[in-house]
Structures are given as C-alpha cells and as structure tokens.
C-alpha cells in the first residue's frame, strides 16, 4: 500500500471567488547526488512535473528539479467561475504518475 497525495480544495465557492488550493504528493525525491554505502551514486528519482487542469483546461504546470525536498508541497490561488473538477497529475522520472482529482461546486 503506497501513500496517497493530499489535496485541499474548498467543496463550494461563490462565482468569482479566489480560492486557495493546496497539494502535497508523497515522494522520496532522491536527488541523484547521494552515494550509497559502497560509494556508488544513487540514481536520481524525483517528481519532475506537476500538472493541474480544471475541466480539462491547463491551470498550473510546474517543472520540478532535484533541489526540492521530499513530499513536495504546492499551493496556489485560482479564481473560480464555474463548477467542475480539478485534476492533479504528478509525473516522476520513471514515467509513473500519481493522479487525484477534486471537484468544486460554484454557485
């Protein structure tokens, strides 16, 4: 059983409101700089991309680099005008992705 991402989106908002979205993805974020006990480099293994879409339209895209610590946390603001769902996709160096989504009701 793997750990799951944590996302906070308000369940409802008024039209035109600015809401804060908080996200945290579980990941080791191995930098590629460290060596193991035998002196060999531990290969880089990080989340390199975060993509957030709202109703299929891109909202936030971020490229991540090795200096970011484990379990990367991102928070951002968005003005909402319609109901829909946010989709969050984190992609790591092995091409695997962690996906989650949250919906919001806008009145």
């Amino acid at each position: 059983m793997a750990r799951k991402p944590r996302v906070k989106v308000p369940s409802s908002a008024k039209k035109g409101d600015v809401i804060q979205i908080k996200t945290l993805a579980p990941h080791k974020m191995e930098t590629g700089q460290r060596k193991n006990k035998k002196g060999k480099k531990i290969p880089r293994f990080i989340i390199n991309k975060l993509e957030v879409t709202f109703n299929g339209k891109p909202l936030v895209t971020a490229d991540l680099h090795p200096a970011i610590s484990a379990n990367p946390y991102f928070a951002f603001f968005n003005r909402v005008t319609e109901s829909g769902s946010f989709k969050f996709v984190w992609t790591d160096d092995k091409g695997k992705s962690i996906t989650t989504s949250k919906s919001i009701k806008v009145a």
């Binding site: 059983m1 750990r3 799951k4 944590r6 908080k22 579980p26 379990n71």
Partner: peptide
C-alpha cells in the same frame, strides 16, 4: 507553518495510510 497546517505537514500522508490499515 508546516506543523500548523495539516495539508502542508507531510506526516499526514503516513497517517492516511494508517487510517486505511
């Protein structure tokens, strides 16, 4: 700040796991 916010505190991903367990 990290401790005061349960979303920013990464320990909660382990706690979520334990809740399932």
């Amino acid at each position: 700040d990290m401790q005061d916010d349960d979303i920013a505190n990464p320990a909660f991903t382990w706690i979520d796991l334990a809740e399932e367990k």
